[in-house]
Design a protein around this nucleic acid. Sequence first.
DNA 1: TGAAGATAAATGCAATTGCATGAACATGTC
DNA 2: GACATGTTCATGCAATTGCATTTATCTTCA
Lengths: 144, 144
Amino acid sequence: MTRKPSQEITAAWANLVRVQQGLLAAVEQDLKQAGFPPLSWYDALLELSRAEHGMLRPVELEKHMLLPQYSTSRLVDRLTEAGLAERMTCPIDGRGQYVAITQAGRNLQKKMWDTYSGAIERHVGAKLSNKDAAQLCDLLGRLA
Amino acid sequence: MTRKPSQEITAAWANLVRVQQGLLAAVEQDLKQAGFPPLSWYDALLELSRAEHGMLRPVELEKHMLLPQYSTSRLVDRLTEAGLAERMTCPIDGRGQYVAITQAGRNLQKKMWDTYSGAIERHVGAKLSNKDAAQLCDLLGRLA
DNA sequence: TGAAGATAAATGCAATTGCATGAACATGTC
DNA sequence: GACATGTTCATGCAATTGCATTTATCTTCA
């Protein structure tokens, strides 16, 4: 059997799960109250908007977002349904496709950022100095 | 509009969400592979096992676990179904009830901890000193 | 007392997720 | 070329979640 985690490790783990879930729920709530779709839509739109030509293979999107394959497929369904993205046939691989962000998608992403950034500032920025944030970031990075 | 979050804050937020989701998925996976139910079952069993007489009102459980009311109700359904907990009528409030952990519930909680603690050690303990963990814990605590 | 409002818990229904599989195409090997 | 294997993406189905509402009981206050 592996060694048991120390008190410190266990406490850090418990806090990590608890705090993240609380903050995420709060941020999602802020988005919803502002009439926006879930954060996962934002994440996808951001990834697409940053990609070359505003398009990505679903497989890429999946890797960026750390989502299961079927989850990506359905997220793209919804984005497409809402007119925020489009599926395009992939010229170099008959199995695959490209997902391209639309102008409406770009617009929504920018509008959501206003609310999203406000939520981050309120729930995180207001409670941590930049120095603390950098430190937190570093510690989390070691866990990745 | 609120101030925009700094680079540091934004990066910390992104890392927090990303790292926690990754680690949590990994730990859940470890539990599942060992043939155990989800972490939420463990959390509930732990709360119950620590409570006076091994029982809690659903409302209490809900507050401890930060879950919505209906979610708690259904979690208790499943625990009861599996013989890990029992619903008892509440003598002091006719609306309410008590949820009591069974011996099987206590046994499962202990068995799950073997696997769970191993996963924590592997995914967190192996990557952070106790000092780092304490610091992480502190930083997260300020966000709560 | 009794009516109004608050609280505890369950549940119907729609949306979402997870899992397993399927269909279409690609790649490597002989 | 043809078969075996791997990759990409979609989807049927069951389980879970979220939301709104219902039922039952409690509390308050006139």
